[in-house]
Design a protein around this nucleic acid. Structure first.
Length: 562
RNA sequence: UGGGGCGUAGCCAAGUGGUCUAAGGCACCGGUUUUUGAUACCGGCAUUUCGGAGGUUCGAAUCCUCCCGCCCCAGCCA
């Protein structure tokens, strides 16, 4: 194995400015090894925006032969839960990444973090403040005006130490005191105006339970946790750019074991959906969706339940790139990645979503044939299967028109079409009910066209999917559409703009027998319609399918254009 | 009248002074093949244009100046 230059590795890794920075650090020897980390707070489920960060962090580590840690940023017991820890672990793993033995929790470092806080106090770099939260805000100044020092800013070190120890000891109530870094109340960067390092929270922590009643803030815990783990490149989103001076200040003023560097990139935004934990929490808590794994949600668990393969998500993350542009990626880009992968891998099946009965008058009653159907034209190794055919079948309601235009290649009175893998049939009669709705089609078939080809060489333009009435299985199919109809889903009024048609449940669907024993996550293509996978609630008695994504439909597009 | 960022086609995004009369992908528009109106394939899609205006240079999307626009920050959230 020959050594590849770091710059080349950066290119192989997809090529972005973060990888370029790491490559330089490796080339210059500033980084002896590459260590990254994915640091979620366990206060919600992961979404595709996190996937971008996960792919970047794990991908960078892999590219440079380093490692990536999974570290929970569990510094706020008021918001964090074990359920979220478990789901995050499951989701990162499902996405295809492995942190090996490097599963960490910021809470594992609480004792060390506390020790460093005392060091800060001893060095005159931190003080205990008695001001209330409101008072601190008032003293902080505004974006254009400097703050004013707290009256407790110049407390004696010994008094600070004593107070801080008593904070830890539980002598004070929530909010009564905080530990603050002593930096610069006049800084243009508000994060440097004596940021809070520790606050008192008498609450049970998911992991440390009641061992602590003071908890470090993100700003204090994050960089030091990175340093403890030997993280070389601490990658985070743009909103933390302002925090970097504080990140660096703490590292410089503490005797930490390593010198991590923070780099920022733009978070992912997607059209037609929301991508922030706050908003997703609102949707879930408010009952606007069925849970964190609702297939309409851009959560990892929602995408998984919908049938989107992890590899499609990874491909998507690789294609959108990593920059500092505040970008909004079109949902169509994700759909494309999903379709592209599934086209190559998903077995083909036939299912009729909105059935219309067809009786083939010249086909013998009681006869059944087993016809050969190709499982995946993109993958010969997928083989073939048998599909039962009989006198009564169902086709898609929209595949018949009473008075079809010339360009309609499907069934109409007197028209001939092909039933996929079966026969050519010609419509002889269409039966209506009292309301004028078609209830049944009468057709004849050409026995010479078995399998779908006419020996006389005649062509038909249309090929329909179908299902044998006697052999089909009844199923429920759930169709999903954008959570938010407009592309621009930003704004706090998103709850008022939810797409009322984001979920359509079809109950009288009929699926071919081979679809009966499919398990969740096994995404298949329903020919001519889209990709579907069984929902976790599916049973052999009552199959339930989710539509992952539809097939492209140029006919529908043409229709819409008129 | 604070600080930190960002501005290349409808959407992402390469590009780091000459090989840019600006990659690639998505979307879109044509066409070919087709037992999925799918897929695949072919072609089109920023010809003084890279937020704008000046300037430096033989030469600028790439350097300088000014201007404009957008995003983030005043949690004891992360």
């Amino acid at each position: 194995m020959t050594d590849t230059e770091p710059e080349e590795k950066a290119e192989e890794g997809g090529g972005n400015f973060i990888l370029d920075i790491i490559a330089e650090d490796v080339a210059s020897g500033r980084a002896k090894e590459v260590v990254t980390r994915f640091p979620p707070e366990p206060n919600g489920y992961l979404h595709i925006g996190h996937a971008k960060s996960i792919c970047l962090n794990f991908g960078a580590a892999e590219t440079f032969g380093g490692r990536c840690h999974l570290r929970f940023d569990d510094t706020n017991p008021l918001k964090e839960e074990v359920e979220f820890i478990d789901s995050i672990i499951e989701d990162v793993r499902w996405l295809g990444f492995d942190w090996g033995q490097h599963l960490y929790f910021a809470s594992d470092y609480f004792e060390r973090l506390y020790g460093w806080a005392e060091h800060l106090i001893e060095a005159g770099n931190a003080y205990v403040d008695d001001l209330t939260a409101d008072e601190i805000r008032e003293h902080r100044g505004t974006l254009t005006e400097p703050g004013t020092p707290s009256p407790h800013r110049d407390r004696e070190r010994q008094e600070n130490l004593d107070l801080f120890r008593r904070m830890r000891g539980g002598e004070f109530a929530d909010g009564e005191k905080v530990l603050r870094a002593k930096i610069d109340m006049a800084s243009g960067n508000i994060n440097m105006r004596d940021p809070v390092l520790y606050r008192i929270v008498h609450a049970s922590h998911p992991r440390t339970v009641d061992a602590w009643c003071i908890y470090p803030t993100y700003d204090y815990a994050h960089g030091q946790s990175d340093a403890i783990e030997g993280v070389t490149h601490s990658l985070c989103t743009l909103e933390f750019e302002d925090h970097r001076p504080l990140y660096d200040w703490l590292i410089e003023n503490l005797d930490v074991p390593s010198r991590p560097r923070q780099y920022e990139f733009a978070r992912l935004n997607l059209t037609h959906t929301v991508l922030s934990k706050r908003r997703l929490t609102e949707l879930v808590a408010g009952g606007h969706v069925a849970g964190w794994d609702d297939p309409r949600l851009p959560t990892i668990s929602g995408l998984r339940r919908r049938g989107v393969p992890a590899a499609a998500i990874r491909d998507f993350c690789a294609r959108i790139g990593v920059t500092k542009n505040d970008a909004v990626v079109e949902m169509a880009a994700l759909d494309h990645c999903t379709r592209e992968l599934l086209n190559k891998t998903a077995p083909r099946r036939m299912a009729v979503l909105r059935p219309l009965k067809v009786v083939i008058e010249n086909y013998p009653e009681g006869k059944t044939e087993e016809l050969d159907a190709v499982n995946n034209p993109e993958d010969e190794a997928a083989g073939t299967r048998k599909v039962p055919f009989s006198r009564e079948i169902y086709i898609e309601r929209e595949d018949f028109m009473d008075d079809p235009p010339k360009k309609f290649f499907r069934l109409g009175p007197g028209r001939e079409v092909r039933l996929r893998y079966a026969y050519f049939i010609t419509c002889t009669d269409a039966i209506k009910d009292a309301d004028g709705a078609f209830t049944e089609l009468r057709c004849t078939y050409d026995p010479e066209t078995r399998g779908g080809d006419a020996p006389d060489g005649r062509k038909v333009r249309g090929t329909l999917h179908w299902v044998s009435a006697e052999h089909a299985i009844a199923a429920e199919v759930r169709l999903y559409d954008h959570l938010i109809a407009e592309a621009d889903a930003s704004g706090d009024d998103f709850l008022d703009r939810l797409n009322p048609d984001s979920l359509e449940v079809l109950d009288g669907c009929l699926i071919e027998p081979a679809l009966g024993d499919l398990g969740p996550g096994e995404t298949v293509q329903f020919e001519r319609q889209g990709y579907f996978c069984p929902d976790p609630v599916t049973t052999p008695e009552k199959p339930v399918f989710n539509r992952t994504v539809s097939l492209r439909d140029s006919w529908a597009k043409k229709q819409k254009k008129g």
